[in-house]
Design a protein around this nucleic acid. Structure first.
Length: 278
DNA sequence: TTCCAGGCTATGT
DNA sequence: ACATAGCATGGA
């Protein structure tokens, strides 16, 4: 166990496998920041957590009722040091694991992940964050912040609304996907196999192989997926191989190499390459 | 000005 | 099944 609950707060005891900067800045979620005291905070759906660094541990501060949610959100019942040792058998990945030692895969809200990654295609992270935060203006008022709106709320909006987000041509993808998702029961979809969910997600407007892989990894907890974007393509050619491959072939190459931990491996590569661009 | 960003859709072969 | 032009927006 790497955490305890004391004083109605989660206390993360192992700093070698939990680092808020690395967790939040490796591109798996988009609604986070640093407050006036220098602490990282993150929103998920209608919930908020603030992470305070102490000498030998981190405190996760949230509503008492949301403690179980954030234990699952930060995947605190998984010992990442065991997985890291396994991944470090790959000599190229090994130093990148050391670089992003505190990364964890978050169990984020499925719908929020779907819309966020539809926005992400052919886009940059700064602008994705801006658009995702703007969507929350029609979400639930949670006091000093707003939640991410449900598909029900989004589907009620006309296309005109989506055009005001600054999402460019993706506005229609968001509208079409919202209209589709209100007819669906995602809890049933979550019971399907990874390949079945993959085929299902490809039916969504604006969702292709890369976005579907991100949704599976971050929104459905399918850690065997390895999304390939421009950054991963760069890491592949800069560090792993000069053999020319298509993106689906690069994905297959890495998923075969890292198996059930492909998603975490992908995050180490992504974080490393974005921090050390050529 | 041109290029690029967590790529996908539509339209060819 | 595979290849590629076009795509909204904004920052470098």
């Amino acid at each position: 166990m790497i955490y305890t609950i004391e004083d109605k707060k989660i206390k993360v005891l192992d700093k070698t496998q939990f680092n808020p900067k690395q967790i939040l800045e490796c591109g798996q979620v988009f609604r986070y920041g640093i407050d006036e005291k220098g602490n990282y905070y993150v929103y998920s759906k209608n919930k908020k957590a603030t992470i305070v660094e102490c000498a030998n541990y981190y405190e996760i501060i949230t509503n008492e009722n949301d403690i179980p949610y954030f234990i699952n959100y930060f995947d605190l019942d998984t010992d990442y040091n065991i997985i890291k040792e396994k991944l470090k058998r790959n000599p190229i990945l090994s130093p990148m694991v050391d670089y992003g030692y505190g990364i964890r895969i978050l169990n984020a809200d499925t719908e929020e992940i779907i819309y966020s990654f539809i926005i992400s295609q052919n886009n940059n992270i700064k602008r994705i964050q801006k658009i995702v935060n703007k969507i929350c203006e029609i979400g639930e008022n949670c006091g000093d912040y707003y939640g991410f709106p449900s598909s029900d709320v989004l589907a009620k909006q006309p296309l005109k609304y989506f055009e005001t987000l600054g999402a460019g041509y993706r506005d229609k993808f968001l509208k079409n996907s919202a209209d589709f998702l209100i007819t669906q029961n995602l809890d049933e979809i979550k019971k399907l196999s990874t390949n079945e969910i993959y085929d299902y997600l490809l039916k969504l407007s604006g969702v292709g192989p890369k976005v579907a892989s991100c949704i599976l990894l971050f929104g459905f907890g399918r850690r065997e997926k390895f999304p390939v974007d421009t950054w991963i393509e760069q890491v592949y050619y800069n560090h792993f191989s000069s053999e020319k491959r298509t993106r689906p072939a690069i994905q297959a190459y890495f998923e075969n190499e890292f198996k059930e931990n492909s998603g975490l491996a992908q995050q180490y590569l992504f974080y490393y390459e974005r921090s050390n661009p050529k």
